[in-house]
């Protein structure tokens, strides 16, 4: 019972903090909307898309880019909540969390889960605005996307959590953001399908294919059409487990996470 009480409290706290930071919400929404309304509109003519699953017909570039932009929201949010972890750690509220009488893995998972829920709320807001703009998915897709968004959110949150445990200073973290977010996003199927990448080069295609972000995006892409992509799910879950294990190891007290002068 205490496990559940703590989980709810951690989600509530994240939500309260989030509501208090309205500019963060707007910034997180503006980013994918700019991509959708400006980049995709301009790119539509330049990029021809053939029919590949899960699409059954020719689609516009705006349709193609939607799952990738959902992934972008999850990616930025996962990293941003890690940024808040580094900040929290410096401010000390991470200490409050980690001195709760619960297993550390559960506390870290709760933090991760809370972050993912906030990200998903943003994704749905984004999908709503895209829908108003005329870019719609099958209705059932909005429901079946939820578990895919959750897996993606957990995976990217776990990556951020793992990074935050190894990054000592906020300044360094900004560098990590650049080295992690941009390569992950551009070396994925978020903006171009993998077969387009293959045309550019086999190596580039292979890098994109093993990128866990690609797998998360594909999972979301199929889920938005109520289809199940087992390899993408498998890869995403595997990556989540690996990142989470790394984070739990990173936050192991025996490693001396919170190093302070005496």
């Amino acid at each position: 019972m205490i496990y559940f009480t703590a989980l709810i409290a951690i989600i509530q706290r994240e939500a309260l903090r989030y509501i208090g930071q309205r500019e963060r919400f707007i910034a997180a929404l503006v980013r994918p909307l700019v991509w959708l309304l400006v980049f995709a509109a301009g790119f539509r003519a330049a990029l021809g898309l053939s029919i590949t699953p899960p699409y059954l017909t020719y689609i516009t570039y705006e349709i193609y880019i939607i799952p990738g932009l959902c992934g972008m929201i999850l990616l930025f949010n996962g990293m941003q909540s890690s940024l808040s972890l580094v900040y929290d750690r410096e401010m000390g509220s991470m200490k409050v969390l980690l001195t709760a009488p619960l297993p550390r893995w559960w506390l870290l998972f709760c933090k991760l889960f809370a972050g993912a829920i906030i990200s998903i709320l943003q994704c749905y807001t984004f999908l709503l605005i895209a829908g108003i703009y005329g870019i719609r998915m099958p209705t059932i897709g909005y429901v079946t996307a939820f578990p895919a968004l959750l897996v993606g959110g957990l995976m990217l949150g776990a990556l951020g959590l793992a990074l935050s445990s190894f990054v000592k200073q906020l300044e360094n973290f900004a560098g990590v953001m650049n080295f992690v977010i941009f390569p992950m996003f551009f070396l994925s199927s978020a903006l171009y399908p993998l077969w387009k990448m293959a045309e550019a080069g086999r190596l580039l295609h292979d890098i994109c294919a093993v990128n866990p972000f690609t797998q998360a995006v594909e999972l979301i892409r199929f889920a938005l059409y109520a289809q199940f992509n087992l390899p993408a799910l498998g890869w995403s879950l595997l990556a989540t487990a690996a990142f989470l294990a790394l984070a739990i190891w990173g936050y192991d007290p025996a490693r001396g996470l919170i190093r302070k002068k005496g």
């Binding site: 703590a6 409290a9 509530q12 706290r13 309260l16 903090r17 409050v96 969390l97 009488p101």
Partner: peptide, 18 residues
């Protein structure tokens, strides 16, 4: 948490302790 109220801070902590 500076942006939360005194009571919200305490409620969060209480929940962490069940």
């Amino acid at each position: 948490d500076l942006d939360l109220t005194v009571a919200q801070n305490l409620r969060y902590f209480a929940a962490l302790h069940g």
